[in-house]
Design a protein around this nucleic acid. Structure first.
Lengths: 139, 139
DNA sequence: CTAAGCCTTACAGCAACTAGAAGGTCAAGG
DNA sequence: CCTTGACCTTCTAGTTGCTGTAAGGCTTAG
């Protein structure tokens, strides 16, 4: 199959597939007589793997590692487990951080008069020195 | 004060301040006889404002809007309220999305044997077609 | 024969900085 | 007076993970 078919099946953009190839994340595919890239079912599996890994938040270098494990029948599942639980911890931390941000934003929204006047606690808070917000964060 | 002092007080990197200037987010500051940028307390307030707004997740263009409101004594607090509650909704959506990702990752971590053998449900799941994960997502 | 819809490469641009080079300025110490 | 180190200046290029655009070749249907 050609690249657009592989793209459709894998959920990646054709551009993205070429890009992955250009950064050596993917092996060079076989080419047809016309110079077109040709993909097999196994290649599509690999593309799917990458798409999912990216969706899970793994960056390109982490995908490289995961892909190496994926392709290596001698892998130890513990290695995979390690990578994934690290990512889980990262995502958890990110969520906590965003949660704090959300709470602060909600505070701002709640405290703003939301009217035609110029007085605005949001503006006042944002203009304040860092410590003020940090202090509120701790409460 | 010079730029590094303003940077320290505001919590922004000196490089970032110059960058903000280069994209017209900040006005050109006065310069000393030696060509060094000179900042006043009011400038530091503005820098703090930007730092906080960025930390709250506003992008540069949104910061431009917020900054205009900040500097405009004729602003209506409702405008500020609008911008901030939109951001709150965005952050909320982002958190929900990340929450789903986290749950899926936790599932993967839990299902992996985490041993010396090569069999690994994580690898298997990642290699699967999109629908499989989507289906799990819905459960 | 031509129009569309693929495919190819290569270069540019996005956000929001960050790093580095190459050089000017300033204050303190020997 | 000279040097050293910490500032400051501008400029260019790199980061991440693509995405857009241009300019051209292949393929297939009408």
């Amino acid at each position: 199959m050609n690249i657009s078919e592989a793209a459709k099946l894998s959920g990646l953009a054709a551009k993205t597939i070429r890009y992955y190839e250009s950064i050596d994340l993917l092996d060079l595919p076989r080419r047809g007589a016309n110079g077109y890239r040709r993909y097999q079912d196994g290649d599509v599996q690999t593309l799917c793997f990458l798409r999912q890994a990216r969706q899970f938040g793994f960056n390109i270098d982490q995908c490289r590692l995961l892909l190496a494990l994926y392709k290596n029948p001698q892998r130890r599942s513990a290695e995979v487990h390690h990578l994934v639980s690290e990512k889980l911890a990262e995502v958890d931390a990110h969520i906590r951080e965003l949660g704090e941000t959300r709470d602060l934003l909600a505070q701002l929204v709640g405290a703003c008069p939301n009217d035609e006047a110029s007085g605005c606690s949001i503006i006042d808070t944002l203009a304040g020195q860092p410590e003020q917000v940090v202090a509120e964060k701790k409460r």
